[in-house]
Design a protein around this nucleic acid. Structure first.
Ligand SMILES: [Mn+2]
Ligand SMILES: [Mn+2]
Ligand SMILES: [Zn+2]
Ligand SMILES: [Zn+2]
Lengths: 134, 134
DNA sequence: GACTTATTGCAACTGATTTGCAATAATATC
DNA sequence: GATATTATTGCAAATCAGTTGCAATAAGTC
């Protein structure tokens, strides 16, 4: 039924209530583990932080979720739906994170040409002041 | 005499032995605090880790040093000399970080066009397998 | 339903970074 | 150069995110 159930089972993971709950809490904007726990608690769902860490780890391995480290802040996780690769505008004042789609194929091509490094993924973040904070 | 002395004093910071030592230990390739402490210890310089943290913080504020967080690893600091803006190839296997110069002006222009966000800086990291680890 | 094994939750641990504070050293003033 | 003022240092202790060990629980299998 749930696609998430299939994806998990295909790779030998079990489909559990907690994994469903964490999956449902995910959005396309990045959230910290604490934020995810809080949003679940708002729905009267009690789940251990450690379980959220482990579940997100699992989702990252499955390619369902991306994990991003913003400067020295704590890591944030966001849902990866097909073909939504994008980058981030991180406000130095309010800490908000805005998504921005940018075609980076030129850069990727150039890296492949210039080096022997086998690029698997990349992260591009812009830091500055958001429209709201200006 | 030392340019670093002037830069510090201009902003009301004091020029100390420790700040000079940390500054001298910096290179254009990113190092962790532990690595910096170790490299100083190799020169028979004893300095507290906390002092290195505080000194690097000060240098980052002055724009002399950049601080980068690679995935969930510990932060690395590198000397910012004029016109050496570059990006990073981070090996998922051995953790090595390679510098790569890439002209990103096209992307920056596009961001300015597409949004109201006031970009101050950015970071672009490529993750994958380095030539050595392949 | 019974069996096997992955997953969960709790507590304890780790490693990086931060904070409080008294001692020390850098600048400013005389 | 000696003296006063205040930033900086080093140490210990605290904090914080994330990890690990382990016994109890629940998913998948037959
Ligand atoms: Mn995003
Ligand atoms: Mn570099
Ligand atoms: Zn903002
Ligand atoms: Zn490597």
């Amino acid at each position: 039924m749930e696609e998430i159930a299939k994806t998990l089972q295909q790779k030998g993971y079990r489909f559990t209530k907690q994994r469903q709950q964490v999956f449902d809490a995910l959005t396309s904007s990045p959230q910290t583990v604490e934020e995810i726990v809080a949003s679940l608690r708002n729905k009267d769902i009690s789940i251990d932080k450690v379980t959220v860490y482990r579940t997100l780890d699992c989702f990252v391995n499955l390619g369902l979720v991306s994990k991003t480290q913003f400067k020295d802040k704590t890591a944030k996780y966001e849902l990866l739906v097909a073909a939504n690769h994008h980058h981030h505008l991180v406000c130095d004042k309010c800490g908000s994170v805005e998504d921005i789609p940018l075609d980076d194929s030129i850069l990727l091509k150039r890296v492949r040409k210039q080096t022997d490094f086998q690029v698997k993924s990349h992260s591009l973040e812009f830091f500055g002041i958001c429209a709201h904070c200006q």
